[in-house]
Design a protein around this nucleic acid. Structure first.
Length: 152
DNA sequence: GCCAACGTTGGC
DNA sequence: GCCAACGTTGGC
């Protein structure tokens, strides 16, 4: 069992929306490091901190879970999609996405300033300067602290 | 809207 | 393989 943090802009796709939809395919990731985490490391049942980026304030909104392992991201083949990739073919897809299911909202939204204030979380990737990676591994000890703080 | 940090592209 | 130019992310 692994733990992850996945970023989403709430204006584009929020945890509320995931609650409504129950599950979603995490399409549109166009970064190789993030893709490789989805393709190689994520397993069904892995738990995910759902992080709202570009929010006011940014922070962790709650928990989701991996519900299907990675498959080719269909948007790479769709000329009308903003995620279309002309180099990708059905035989040789470039981009993959996992399916994520809703688990819970935190009772207490954990804002980025609160994360920064907690010394025990200081080495979380998301808190490192210039950390733009949209999918990040999270250590169990950090995940446990977050769920306690959030009151999940 | 600004801009620092980072990833990708492409010329050489 | 280097690296400048460019595009994107994401906090503020």
């Amino acid at each position: 069992m692994k733990y992850w943090l996945m970023k989403s802009e709430p204006d584009v796709f929020s945890l509320d929306q995931l609650k409504k939809d129950k599950t979603t395919w995490w399409t549109g990731v166009r970064n190789y490091q993030a893709r490789n985490f989805m393709m190689k490391d994520m397993q069904v049942g892995d738990e995910v901190l759902f992080y709202h980026s570009n929010a006011t304030p940014p922070g962790v909104a709650g928990i989701a879970r991996i519900s299907k392992v990675a498959e080719p991201d269909k948007e790479q083949f769709d000329k009308k999609s903003e995620y279309f990739d002309p180099k990708a073919t059905k035989e040789k897809p470039i981009w993959f996405c996992v399916q994520v299911e809703y688990v819970a909202h935190f009772k207490n939204y954990i804002s980025l300033p609160e994360l920064r204030d907690n010394a025990k979380l200081a080495d979380m990737l998301v808190l490192q300067k210039g950390s733009r990676l949209s999918i990040q591994p999270v250590e169990k000890k950090h995940f446990d602290i977050l769920t306690k703080l959030g009151g999940a």
